[in-house]
Design a protein around this nucleic acid. Structure first.
Length: 828
RNA sequence: GCCGGGGUGGCGGAACUGGUAGACGCGCCGGAUUCAAAAUCCGGUUUCCGAAAGGAAGUGAGGGUUCGAUUCCCUCCUCCGGCACCA
């Protein structure tokens, strides 16, 4: 047999697999040759490969390693396809964890962040990622955030940013604004105080101005997963409906509501407003019970998930609303599930034909009226079950007997003709609130003057630099206590004025960093012609948890930059791959659960290639990956086998030229396997992104080589071709070991500059194919038939199989289905 | 609650366009090597019946379409992601 067993080969010590040596040498070569630093080469096809940049939280965790490796595999594969590949890396460096660490350790957020960046960058280098570090970005650097301050000012000038009141979680004890995740069961995480909803003025970006464009373009984005596009469509939530005004008894101001179901208007039996609505406030002033209820409503956190899952509560305000068509009075309620920030803060309730209204009416004994009947004429009992389908109007006065469309149109017409409403489009999408009452973020470039109101900082005064050397207590933003920061002259009138101390949402930084990687050093413009060369990103990789917010904000910002003349592109990311989480024992790795696996330890023990290989082999990228220590050992074993197989082949001496015409059957079989594998793995890596099956196919090919016992000249030549193919095809996943083995196989050119292997179609040809034979859909036998046999011949051969005969004998063959090259199904 | 995704051997997963369910790997069992162990190599491994040949069942549960369903449709269970201040 072929000698691949280390025991028998007695290899010198120097040829054993030592990952650390191999990896250090490869990494040194890449660094010294500057293999991954790229300029703009218009003669080559560019490929921009990008991973969502990490938050510098301290050390890399397995989730990072997974997504970084996925992106690296794609980058390296595309390079082998001859593309001009850029893969940059940087840091989403502003954010809350730095403030929390500052409170805990008495270290300024900046210092903590820069230390983490240093640590994580060295970990990334140890993993062998093909990054162009000359383009590194850290969003907390003024050179970076000055340009988003600049864009903010441009948007201000265009009316794309504006200020309005909105609700935050207020911790009355710590006197600070809390993030949703800092509110636990309605209480502050540190103070344990009951959180209040408080309205404060905040800055908003008008993403709704682009709502239709963001929605429509989704239909022309084939490189994005359908699931993400569907989530974004639903998030934008475009609905066509009617705005209707209802008079309120004893009030000047009418109540405006939006509905997509004006056909159900005659079924309105009550109305409801949010606790913050002026009518609720007014009633609260006169009625202690209402006041208590309104106060209770304000004492819950602002997250939609909380509001949707909590008990639906409400209370009549003692105010009547006049039904515009019947003139009937219906009661006005205040309800905890109506949101002031969504639509008009008021809703009309049709309990007969809306699930939530029906349950609320049942609970509070409000009347339920049927005004829609099923289109098929069947009877329903509206007291027993709600009916939400579209149907035919009944009990609707002059509007009876109409289908949805007719009823919608005639009622909408009436409101428009009487000046009491209008057809309108409503979006679930709300404008983006970007103000954060926090220190560790990019300062909002606004100055408040008593005379001139909010004035943007003049362009020439940018950046507004965040002071980095601060004492951080956790009680409000330290910026308020820095007079040199706060006290400024009004750029308009020169009077004493105050600087804005709120900072920008960190999603702002991550909404344009991808374009800045093209020109990170430009200090006179946000973007330049290099961005035009590299954008859009050809392959973007990141967690599915960003399916909506980050990806939608980035699509919005790309359009803002386009309309500012900075880019010709509307969409930032041509292809999107969303990777799953890394789990251990079925749960997300987290410090709380104590199930964290540190990549560092594994790299020290097995090397970076083993860690990379396991990550890519254990699951396809979109799926959650279950961690397994045994699986890692298996990957290490495979790499040792791989190494030893190549070494054993080399030890047997030089290899002659492959003469395809001189091969015997078994040599042809191995060569067919080689080229089948090249075809499959190319497809897995280039189209399907199923790295797990690509690795499995490489293992199969290596197993075939190991089992192949043929020391003849042609036997060794066929083995040589197979081993070279495996080395090339595994190299995107395990670049270090392949770098070393490629050189050992006698090549002068470093693997990183070698092209991907090509399929020799003639090697795939075969004379006989195996066909599966079924009887009534059950597997009963296999037959070997000529590859070019016609269906009749295949059918007859199938019928002749002895075991097939056992099930067919004495019965009439009713039908024979032949799937060429695959199977025959005989139906009796 | 709403939106999106998943559920296949003891475990991770494969089956790409409706056509052989379980590739590849882990684990386990048996064997070789070893004084012994580790490491390594060889063989086996969905479950049940059977000495074997072979047969029956089987992809979260139930139903449907089809010559044929892990794949398509309906109902349900369950786990995960998001829900606008975690990033």
């Amino acid at each position: 047999m072929r000698v691949l067993d280390t025991r028998k080969t007695e290899l010198p010590m120097s040829t054993a697999y030592h990952p650390e040596t191999v990896e250090t040498e490869a990494q040194q070569y890449w660094a010294e040759a500057k293999c991954f630093e790229v300029g703009e080469d218009t003669d080559k096809e560019k490929f921009y490969c990008l991973t969502m940049f990490p938050y510098p939280s301290g050390k890399l965790h397995m989730g990072h390693v997974r997504v970084l490796t996925i992106s690296d595999v794609i980058a390296r594969y595309q390079r082998m396809q001859g593309k001009h590949v850029m893969q940059p890396m940087g840091w989403d460096a502003f954010g809350m964890p730095a403030e929390n660490a500052a409170i805990r350790n008495k270290v300024p957020p900046a210092k903590w962040t820069y230390a983490n960046i240093k640590e994580m960058r060295s970990q990334m280098d140890r993993l062998g990622y093909a990054y162009d570090w000359s383009r590194e970005i850290a969003t907390c650097r003024p050179e970076y955030y000055r340009w988003e301050q600049w864009l903010f000012i441009k948007m201000f000038a265009k009316g794309l940013v504006y200020r309005k009141n909105s609700i935050v979680n207020w911790d009355p004890v710590d006197q600070t604004v809390l993030a949703n995740e800092q509110v636990i069961d309605g209480r502050g995480w540190r103070s344990d105080a009951l959180v209040e909803r408080r309205e404060i003025p905040q800055w908003f970006m008008k993403i709704t101005a682009y709502a239709d464009e963001l929605l429509d373009e989704l239909d022309r984005m084939p490189g994005w997963p359908d699931s993400v596009k569907t989530m974004q469509r639903n998030w934008i939530g475009r609905s066509e409906g009617v705005e209707l005004t209802f008079d309120v008894a004893g009030e000047e101001e009418p109540l405006t509501v939006f509905t997509t179901r004006p056909d159900t208007l005659f079924g309105v039996t009550y109305m409801a407003v949010a606790a913050e609505h002026p009518l609720a406030e007014k009633a609260a002033a006169e009625n202690a019970e209402v006041a208590a209820f309104v106060a209770e409503c304000k004492q819950m956190d602002a997250a939609e998930a909380t509001i949707e899952t909590m008990e639906k509560k409400g209370m009549p305000l003692g105010i009547s609303v006049i039904h515009p068509l019947t003139g009937d009075e219906v009661p006005l309620w205040v309800a905890n599930f109506v949101l002031m920030s969504y639509g008009t803060g008021a809703v009309m309730a049709v309990p007969g034909h809306d699930e939530r209204d029906w349950e609320f009416a049942k609970k509070h004994g409000l009347p339920i009226r049927q005004v829609i009947a099923p289109a098929d004429g069947s009877d329903i009992d509206i007291d027993e079950a709600v009916f939400v389908d579209k149907g035919i109007t009944v009990n609707s006065g002059d509007y009876d007997g109409l289908d949805y469309e007719a009823a919608f149109n005639s009622i909408a017409d009436w409101f428009e003709q009487n000046g009491r409403g209008r057809r309108t489009v409503n979006y679930r999408l709300r404008d983006w609130g970007v103000s954060r009452q926090r220190y560790w973020g990019a300062p909002i470039p606004i100055i408040y003057c008593d005379d001139c109101d909010a004035v943007p900082v003049p362009e020439e005064d940018l950046p507004v630099v965040l002071p980095e050397d601060v004492e951080f207590t956790g009680h409000g933003s330290p910026l308020k206590d820095i007079p040199e920061f706060v006290n400024v002259e009004c750029p308009n009138c020169g009077k004493d004025a105050r600087r804005e101390t709120d900072t920008l949402d960190t999603f702002v930084e991550s909404s344009w960093y991808f374009a800045r990687y093209a020109c990170p050093d430009n200090d006179s413009a946000m973007l330049d012609e290099r961005a035009a060369y590299w954008m859009p990103v050809d392959q973007y990789t990141g967690g599915i948890e960003h399916a909506i917010l980050h990806l939608l904000y980035s699509r919005f910002f790309q359009r803002v930059m386009r309309d500012e003349g900075l880019s010709d592109d509307s969409e930032p990311f041509t292809n999107l791959l969303t990777q799953g989480m890394v789990l251990k024992d079925g749960a997300k790795m987290s410090k709380n659960k104590g199930n964290v696996v540190d990549p560092q330890e594994l790299i020290a023990k097995y090397g970076a290639d083993t860690v990379r290989l396991f990550m890519m082999f254990a699951a396809p990228p979109e799926q959650a990956l279950e961690w397994s220590d045994e699986g890692v050992r298996g990957s290490f074993r495979f790499l040792k086998r791989f190494w030893n197989a190549v070494q054993a082949h080399l030890d047997a001496g030089p290899v002659g030229r492959l003469d395809v015409a001189a091969l015997d059957t078994r040599q042809k079989d191995l060569r067919r396997k080689t080229h089948q594998s090249i075809a499959k793995i190319s497809d897995d890596l280039g189209r399907r992104y199923t790295f797990n099956t690509a690795i499995a196919a490489s293992m199969e090919l290596l197993n075939a080589v190991t089992r192949f016992e043929d020391e003849s000249e042609m036997g060794r030549a066929v083995v040589h071709e197979a081993l070279e193919a495996v080395v090339l095809m595994l190299s995107p996943m395990v670049p270090h070991i392949c770098h070393a083995l490629w050189a050992a196989l006698g090549h002068e050119t470093a693997l990183v500059d070698v092209r991907w292997p090509t399929v020799d179609q003639s090697a795939l040809e075969t004379d006989l194919v195996e066909i599966v034979v079924q009887v009534n859909g059950k597997l009963r036998g296999r037959v070997s038939v000529a590859a070019d046999a016609d269906n009749d011949t295949i059918g007859q051969q199938a019928l002749a199989d002895p075991n097939v005969q056992r099930f067919v004998a004495g019965k009439e063959v009713r039908k024979t289905i032949v799937v060429p090259g695959r199977l025959v199904n005989i139906v009796v």
